[in-house]
Amino acid sequence: MGRVLLKVIILGDSGVGKTSLMNQYVNKRFSNQYKATIGADFLTKEVMVDDRLLWDTAGQERFQSLGVAFYRGADCCVLVYDVNSAKSFETLDSWRDEFLIQASPHDPENFPFVVLGNKIDVEENKRQVTQKRAMTWCQSKGNIPYFETSAKEAINVEQAFQTVAKNALQQEAEEQLLDIPPMLDVNLTSNRPSLPSRYVDYPDPIQLDSENSQSYGCNC
């Protein structure tokens, strides 16, 4: 089995849990001692068929000028907000635009995003963004897959990143085709498989009472 190196960028406001999600997915750990990410950080995750490179960025937009170099070549972008903060949800638009401008993907209309509503482990009455509101937004942006997660309780993190990988893989395949020199174009059109529309797959149904909701607690 060959390897695909996928580059996944995680964006969102300060303190919504980007680093925690990344660490939960890669290291299966949660710590509430995370520090503010300065500039960018990254981890790699090796899965059966691929090697995922996760770039976690600082939530402060003045660090986004670093972004251009870090964003380039991204295969998927994960947008994270905190379900307990309306503001962090409202800025998703800007984060999405910011990414598309900085990464300038070939086909911005169809670039794969995944939205994660994090911190669902916090009690219900603190919640400020309903699932319906989030899903409506995601649909309006071209059916972006949406997951509600808890990095702390490891809820839906694995499932969310599986979708991230799947969409990123597809993106990578398309980028490959685009990378082929123009002289091959004639052959290309006949060989090109009919690619399925990217967002035919709706996200897995969200299960808030996932059996995975065991707590990993704090490891410090």
Partner: peptide, 9 residues
């Protein structure tokens, strides 16, 4: 909201 003029902070 975060804007795209980040290069001109």
């Amino acid at each position: 909201r975060p804007t795209f003029v980040s290069r001109f902070q």
